[in-house]
Simulated scan of single mutants.
Amino acid sequence: MNTLKTTAIIAFATFTASVEAQEQTVNTSESKVVWKGYKVAGSHEGTIKIESGTLQFNGEQLTGGEFVMDMTSINTTDLEGEYKDQLDGHLKSDDFFGVENHPTAKLVFTKVTPSGKNAYDVQGSLTIKGITNPISFTLSVYGSKATVNLKIDRSQYNVRYGSKSFFNNLKDKAIYDEFDIVADLQF
């Protein structure tokens, strides 16, 4: 009798856990990802598209996530015409993100810890140009929306152009290693 009772409890617990665990697909057309890069003489910003994304929940609590970014969609929004086309092309070149050989970047959540109402501290692995490094950030979830601000050090991903980490005497031509990503996600 004890074996039957134990089996029933395990089956019920497994069924309950699978009912509560759910994966939400990110609506890639309704979500928006903005990047901003900084240089000594100013900054540039633009957008990049999400190719695919999911967030995992247990009930209402975030437990995981995974995103693939379409690096070929890098788009500058603070310039127009020839200057915009030049910067978009340069960002897609091997000097920066090398999208011909690395058309996607990937973020995988490895640990999610609640840190306040609707807020989570997330540890993850970020892959850019085939190089994977750990990353930490805070993500907020409100109903079917989530927001996140990431600060990424491009030098960790062999994005060298104009970086003081790799070149001397750049003076006012230097581009800072850290750039920002702000994502407003709909799911």
Rank of each mutant, 00 (worst) to 15 (best):
V122A: 11
G98K: 13
H90I: 14
G42I: 09
N101S: 13
L126Q: 03
Q61L: 00
T77F: 06
S93M: 07
H90T: 10
V108C: 06
N2Y: 02
T63S: 15
G37K: 07
N27P: 05
A21C: 04
V112D: 04
I135F: 08
H44E: 04
Q24S: 08
F96I: 10
G143Q: 10
K106M: 03
N133C: 00
T47R: 00
V108T: 15
V40M: 09
T63H: 09
H102V: 00
K36F: 00
P114S: 11
M69L: 15
L4A: 08
T76P: 04
V68G: 04
V148L: 13
S31R: 08
G65E: 06
E51Q: 15
I74Q: 06
Q61D: 13
S31G: 07
E100N: 13
N75P: 01
Q86L: 15
Q61V: 12
G81Y: 07
T77N: 13
L139F: 08
M71D: 08
T47Y: 03
N2D: 08
A146K: 11
R160V: 11
A13E: 02
D172E: 15
L4K: 08
G42R: 09
G162P: 04
F179D: 04
L185P: 02
Y161T: 05
L139V: 14
I9A: 11
V112I: 09
D180Y: 02
E66I: 02
N27C: 11
W35H: 01
T132A: 14
L91I: 12
T132V: 12
N58G: 00
K117E: 15
S115N: 14
G89W: 09
E80D: 15
V108G: 04
E66D: 14
Q61M: 10
Y120I: 09
E20K: 07
S163Y: 10
V182R: 11
Y38C: 00
Y120W: 06
N2T: 09
K173D: 14
V182M: 13
D94G: 13
V40H: 10
A119P: 02
G37H: 05
E178L: 04
N27E: 14
D88E: 15
V99L: 05
L4W: 00
I48Y: 00
L4Q: 10
I181Q: 01
A11F: 02
L139C: 13
L79D: 02
E60L: 03
F97R: 01
S115W: 03
V141I: 14
D70V: 05
T54S: 14
S29F: 03
